[in-house]
Amino acid sequence: MTEKIITKKEVEYVAKLAKLEFNEEEKEEFTSQLNSILDYFKKLNELDTERVEPTAYVISMPNLLNEDKVKPSLPQDEVLFNSKYVKKGYFKVPKIM
C-alpha cells in the first residue's frame, strides 16, 4: 500500500489551474497514479545528496547573451497563418474580463 502524498483535493486544485475537468472516477484514478509515481521517486531518497548542490540545470556553462540588434520580424500574414480566428490583423479570442 502506497502512502498518500497527494489527496483528491490536490488533484482537483491542479486540474482547476490547468483548466481541466474530470469526473469522480478519473479523479480517483489520477490520485492513485500520482501517489504511486511519487512513491517510486522515493527511491531517490536512498542517495546521499549531502554534498550535492540543488540542480535546476544539468549543463554548466555561462549564460549566452545577444547583441542589442534589430532584425526583421515575421510578416503579419505568416504570424496569423496558423490561426482560425483572425480579424483586421488581430488574433480573435473569446472575451476574457
Partner: peptide, 28 residues
C-alpha cells in the same frame, strides 16, 4: 529602452504599429 526585445531581435518600437507586425517565433 533597448533597440531589440528582451529575448529576440524584434524591434521595441511597437507603439502605433500595425497589429502583429512586430513579432517572431520567440516572442510568439
Amino acid at each position: 529602452m533597448t533597440k531589440a526585445k528582451m529575448f529576440c531581435h524584434c524591434s521595441t518600437d511597437y507603439i502605433g504599429k500595425e497589429p502583429n507586425t512586430n513579432t517572431c517565433p520567440v516572442c510568439l
